[in-house]
């Protein structure tokens, strides 16, 4: 028998597999397909204080080994999430869920986090300072150590639950930002969000995406994510959630060897809606193949 359990900021996950924010909605679309309680947890759709429509379409552009998205944080707003999505989620997901929060000002981050911190279904806050698709949006908070620390500190002051800061790869020194978040009181980090990119339509000479640019995700970014998780894990001694192109149990193990305590699966869900369940089921077999008996013991175990 192998042990897949890991500890994420004081909460035990039966396995390290989580659905990633933005690719898992509020869980309902996947709960129709399989019992999502098999997951360690999932991070729900990035939520803001006020409802947001997001960007105009096209919001999706394809790229080799992945896709660009410029959804622009479409969400019903925190009040509707609390009034409608969380009660609905209670019907199909019994584990603590990760609440992903975005904002356009320090005050908005604080208020949204405070409201979600008070929900008993929420296990962790994941503070997104790295959305590349909204103007004046979260990314501006995540690109300097000072602003990332300011958001972290302000949110920590109103939250009793673990605060995980979701970092952008669109920075020159991930280690200094990771340290700034730690020093400001973050309980963990998650990375990477998407890499800013663009595509041009040869039929029109215009950008494919209405927004002009979008965030690249999918298997193409996995090596970048792996290296940044490793870099962050070297810089700070705190739980890290590895995100970026993970599509198999082998990828999960690789990401954990780089320093991740848990992982989030994003884009792969869009192509293979059963992928999270399949990876959870595959994991023990793949662990056995590589003679891993206790998954948490390989965290940061790259030689």
């Amino acid at each position: 028998m192998v042990n897949t359990a890991v500890d994420l900021c004081g909460i035990t996950l039966s396995n390290p597999i989580m659905g990633a924010s933005g690719c898992f909605g509020y869980g309902a679309e996947f709960a129709e397909l399989y019992d999502i309680n098999c997951l360690g947890s999932f991070s729900f759709k990035g939520t803001t204080l006020h409802p947001r429509f997001g960007n105009s379409t096209p919001r999706i552009a394809e790229s080799t080994g992945g896709l660009l998205n410029a959804v622009g944080l479409q969400n019903p707003g925190v009040h509707k999430v609390i009034a409608e999505e969380l009660p609905r989620m209670r019907g199909f997901f019994t584990k603590p869920v990760m609440a992903n929060v975005s904002g356009f000002s320090l005050e908005e981050y604080v208020e949204t986090c405070r409201l979600l911190d008070g929900q008993d279904q929420v296990g962790w806050l994941e503070v997104n300072v790295s959305c590349p698709n909204v103007h004046m949006g979260g990314l501006s908070f995540g690109t300097t150590p000072q602003s990332a620390a300011a958001v972290t500190k302000a949110v920590k002051a109103v939250c009793s639950k673990p605060v995980i800061v979701k970092l952008s790869p669109n920075v020159s020194d991930i280690a200094s930002i990771a340290k700034a978040c730690r020093d400001a009181g973050a309980d963990g980090l998650s990375l990477i969000n998407t890499l800013v990119g663009m595509r041009i339509d040869l039929k029109t000479f215009r950008p494919v995406l209405f927004n002009g640019t979008g965030g690249l995700s999918g298997p193409a970014v996995f090596p970048v994510a792996l290296r940044m998780v490793h870099k962050a894990a070297q810089a700070v001694d705190m739980p890290i959630i590895g995100i970026g192109g993970i599509s198999s149990a082998e990828d999960v193990i690789e990401m954990m060897l780089a320093g991740a305590t848990a992982v989030q699966i994003g884009s792969a869900n869009l192509v293979d809606p059963f992928i999270c369940r399949d990876i959870v089921e595959d994991l023990p077999r793949v662990m056995a193949r590589y003679k891993i008996t206790d998954l948490k013991k390989i965290i940061g175990g790259m030689c």
């Binding site: 933005g22 690719c23 898992f24 909605g25 679309e29 996947f30 759709k45 429509f53 997001g54 379409t57 096209p58 919001r59 999706i60 552009a61 896709l67 998205n69 959804v71 479409q74 494919v208 869900n269 869009l270 192509v271 809606p273």
Partner: peptide, 22 residues
């Protein structure tokens, strides 16, 4: 018709405005 990510409602990649909301 619209460019889609997932095709089953998870990614919000194909949302349009209608008289009855997004």
């Amino acid at each position: 018709e619209e460019r889609m990510g997932c095709g089953f409602g998870a990614c919000m990649g194909c949302t349009v405005r209608t008289a009855n909301g997004a």
